[in-house]
């Protein structure tokens, strides 16, 4: 189920503006890869190119190659809608569908995949996904209440449940804890630990400790200067990045000398 991702010579544009330049990296399967770097260096942009969400912005495009399990993600015969069904995404701000119940939120993706979902199968997906997202106990008595009524942390776990309900191969998370309090953050970090046995996870984070806590590998992105494109400086096992990085810039960023 989980897949590794090979990125080579990736350039990402917004119209004529080159936002990210020349990224080459391999994201291993069944493991957590953290993306760190200063604001505006293109972490979100890079992450969104991994499930073809980048191109929903008018004028946005990508050059280069991303291969998942031998298949070229940007091949001419590949349907971006199909890609997004296989690669789940969790956003910075929790975004459950406001008018839908908790139950329907979890099923939103599954209902896209198969129009007629038997009730017992649906119940099973809801329970399994909410349990995986560590939310089942808290909401099992109010599944028909709107998802909007939950706390921020619960909403974010609901969004994770919604993403994993369709059993994607890869799970992308863009600063999933940045809008949350420390307790909810810790709940989500625990969850990431549990999910990595089944999923390939890529997580963008601003929080160095969080990267150190949850990830196996860390990729450091940086900007060469104002107005220049972001680029990948170094990717290594997290332990190495935080103890003995190869690049000066990485060390400077991690020890907080800039960024």
């Amino acid at each position: 189920m989980a897949k590794s991702i090979d990125v080579s010579d990736l350039n990402i544009y917004y119209g004529d503006f080159l936002a990210v330049e020349g990224v080459t990296m391999t994201i291993p399967s069944r493991s957590v890869t953290a993306l760190i770097g200063p604001s505006g260096c293109g972490k979100s942009t890079f992450l969104r190119s991994l499930n073809r969400m980048h191109e929903v912005i008018p004028g946005a495009r990508v050059e280069g190659k991303i291969v998942i399990d031998g298949q070229d993600l940007y091949g001419s015969e590949v349907d971006p809608v199909e890609v997004r069904r296989q690669i789940g995404m969790v956003f910075q701000r929790p975004n459950p569908f406001p008018t839908m119940s908790i139950y329907d939120n979890v099923l939103a993706g599954s209902r896209l995949n198969s129009k007629r979902l038997p009730k017992d199968r649906a119940d099973e997906i809801v329970e399994r996904s909410l349990t995986s997202a560590n939310l089942w106990v808290e909401v099992k008595d109010r599944l028909n209440k709107p998802g909007q009524g939950l706390s921020g942390g619960q909403q974010q776990r609901l969004c994770i449940a919604r993403a994993i309900a369709v059993e994607p191969q890869v799970l992308l998370m863009d600063e999933p804890c940045s809008a949350l309090d420390p307790i909810s953050t810790s709940a989500i970090e625990d969850l990431i630990h549990e999910l990595k046995s089944d999923y390939t996870i890529v997580i963008v984070t601003h929080n160095m400790q969080q990267a150190a806590r949850v990830s196996e590998d860390t990729a450091f992105f940086n900007l060469a200067g104002a107005g220049k494109p972001g680029n990948l400086v170094e990717m290594n096992p997290t332990r190495k990045i935080f103890s003995n990085p190869e690049e000066k810039a990485t060390e400077a960023y991690i020890s907080g000398r800039f960024g």
């Binding site: 997004r84 069904r85 569908f97 896209l112």
Partner: peptide, 12 residues
């Protein structure tokens, strides 16, 4: 936010 939630799930 809501539109992207749907698109990211693989909605047409």
């Amino acid at each position: 936010l809501n539109e992207e939630a749907a698109l990211a799930l693989g909605a047409t």
